[in-house]
Design a protein around this nucleic acid. Sequence first.
DNA 1: TGGTCTTTAGAACAACCGTTCTGATAAGGC
DNA 2: GCCTTATCAGAACGGTTGTTCTAAAGACCA
Lengths: 201, 201
Amino acid sequence: MTPRAETDHASAIKAAKELFWRRGYHETSMEEVVSATGLNRYALYNAFGGKLELFLKVLELYQNERKELFLRVLNDPERSPLDAVRTVGEFCISEMAERGAGCLICNVALEFGPCEPIVAECVTGYLAEVQSAKEMALEQAAACGELNPAITPKEGAAMLMTHMLGVGARARNGASREEMLRSLHSCVAVLKATRIEKEAS
Amino acid sequence: MTPRAETDHASAIKAAKELFWRRGYHETSMEEVVSATGLNRYALYNAFGGKLELFLKVLELYQNERKELFLRVLNDPERSPLDAVRTVGEFCISEMAERGAGCLICNVALEFGPCEPIVAECVTGYLAEVQSAKEMALEQAAACGELNPAITPKEGAAMLMTHMLGVGARARNGASREEMLRSLHSCVAVLKATRIEKEAS
DNA sequence: TGGTCTTTAGAACAACCGTTCTGATAAGGC
DNA sequence: GCCTTATCAGAACGGTTGTTCTAAAGACCA
């Protein structure tokens, strides 16, 4: 493969990502993909095989970008663990609000459901990876007394991930950036340990 | 309209609800609707007008059933407010797990997104109603000191709703009943006020 | 029983989709 | 400059969808 073709493919995947993100998989026609990527039909089918295969490439790109960023933030020693978790959430919300189209993973999880097992597996795997990164962050939080003792780091991570999926759903339903941020901040707030003096009885 | 036709329509909507719930709107063909409802094409189109109109009827039925049940549980004086909130969540999870197909509202919110404004509005309205019912429950919880003081009832209700939408997304991605229940219980646990004695300094 | 009106099942229609095919065009090596 | 190879745009194909049409079957009442 020539270097030219390689960058062509990369930028095609990027353009397709934006398209699928905004309009969903089924609502996006190959017609649109062709005109958005600049590549012509023939080249597209030669390079990727078909619509679903292209989409899997898109998912791969999206997940790699995300995972790299998330791990960098969550492992940043300058941040408190819960700050890091909040920052990651805020980043996602910014992206959702920008496009007005929710979260790609969340959209896909619900659009395909169990119909296309390969896509479902892909989503499940990604969610599990991000969740375990968050779990590690919450373990640190627990170690320094920052975590609400009502839950374990594992439970907290699961809850956070589920909550962020819900934020994605709300985004796709038209929620504003502020609404989503409020919800995220509430979620982080209740994960924090709150020390209340026991009332004198 | 004869009584016969009326019950026919009602049971048709019910059957269509199950279908749309399990398979989504776009993946369900009118062919399937015809054979699932028992009504024939002509009668279906005469009674409802078209696929989208039928679907709106389905949404209406679903929302009415839900709202009635939720209000009954949330206003039950026998339950503590947070218990009521948990019970409502558990009910939703049971339904999702039964069908292995997530939450109808959540699925719809993501399947349509902003494409079909009338559907989006319908979803938004329903979510707002349920959320305000939960907010009232949390206000009671706050009044008797059951609510985590890190958040207000309003914030807590928004967070709960968002979390339940996330549970719906996970359900559609194949999560087990147990996973979903754990996540719900974590969410309720962090909403509870946890009293920790201040360490003697 | 006979005649009118409604209901039925399935064919037909028009639109759209992902994919493949085709003939024309451009590029590259000699 | 010429021949081979790769690339292009768009037409064509097969399949599916929501919807409508149509001719046969049935219900109803006198």
